[in-house]
């Protein structure tokens, strides 16, 4: 006998159980995001943009107005919505390929302009939907379909440090953090602060979430959690990186 877990109020019951693979971290990120939306009572004002890739499977996840876009183009679509109607709370939801590769010019320019939107980027170290190719976030030595002998840093460089890069180019007023599905309470806190930051009109908000992909990592449950908690955090430091009013580190 099983008891259905409590769902955030803004989740859409009709689309559950969701379409993500077993063990995928997207459901956890969207749970944290859903709870943050509930706690802020903003369900009716949210415009949620879903990027292409596994992020797209979130397109009917919420009972919030949602638009599918193109690969990498969620940031400009959501920016366009926000610029024309600043009363809405706009969220661009994307993967590491969408945010750091094909849509990097949009992410970094939206950040530089301090667009009053929230970009949520799910980092699972590879392209999930297309079958596990190397991504900007693939770890050195990590095997993927396009780096079958492991990511060679001579050829492919080091994993992109997205939040650090965004923090470096944003003005005061931006909120930047990296959370992980291994600490959902903290991730929800980051997402909630990021949404509040947008609603206060302070500036760009960006949360990267370290996430899991047992399907393409070909890992069992134990190995999956070991990878996200131990291997990924060697390169991706979890925590708040920038918040309005915080002094810059010397």
């Amino acid at each position: 006998m099983s008891v259905a877990p409590r769902m955030p109020k803004c989740w859409r019951e009709e689309s559950k159980p969701h379409k993500f693979c077993p063990g995928c971290g997207h459901g956890l990120v969207l749970k944290a995001l859903g709870e943050a939306i509930d706690e802020l009572g903003i369900q009716d004002k949210v415009v949620f943009g879903a990027d292409i890739g596994c992020s797209l499977l979130a397109w009917d996840f919420f009972n919030c107005d949602t638009v599918q876009t193109h690969h990498g183009r969620t940031t400009p679509v959501v920016t366009g919505v926000k610029r024309a109607n600043p009363d809405l709370v706009c969220i661009a939801y994307m993967g590491d390929g969408g945010g750091y590769a094909i849509g990097s010019q949009h992410l970094f320019n939206a950040a530089a302009r301090n667009e009053r939107i929230l970009a949520v980027l799910v980092n699972n170290t590879q392209y999930g939907m297309t079958g596990g190719q190397m991504a900007p976030t693939t770890l050195p030595g990590q095997k993927t379909e396009t780096s079958p002998y492991g990511r060679d840093i001579e050829q492919a460089g080091y994993p992109t440090q997205g939040p650090e890069a965004v923090a470096a180019i944003t003005q005061d007023g931006a909120y930047v953090a990296r959370g992980t599905v291994a600490n959902l309470r903290q991730l929800k806190g980051f997402l909630k602060k990021a949404l509040e930051n947008q609603m206060a009109g302070n500036g760009f908000s960006f949360v990267e979430a370290l996430s899991t992909c047992p399907t393409n990592w070909r890992t069992n449950a134990a190995k999956t959690w070991e990878f996200v908690e131990k291997e990924m955090t060697k390169y991706f430091k979890v925590g708040e990186i920038k918040a309005p009013g915080q002094k810059k580190e010397a």
Partner: peptide, 14 residues
């Protein structure tokens, strides 16, 4: 790309 997609976003917001 961004000019086009932001335009679409603007239209979507009415």
């Amino acid at each position: 790309l961004s000019a086009g997609f932001t335009t679409l976003g603007g239209v979507l917001s009415g």
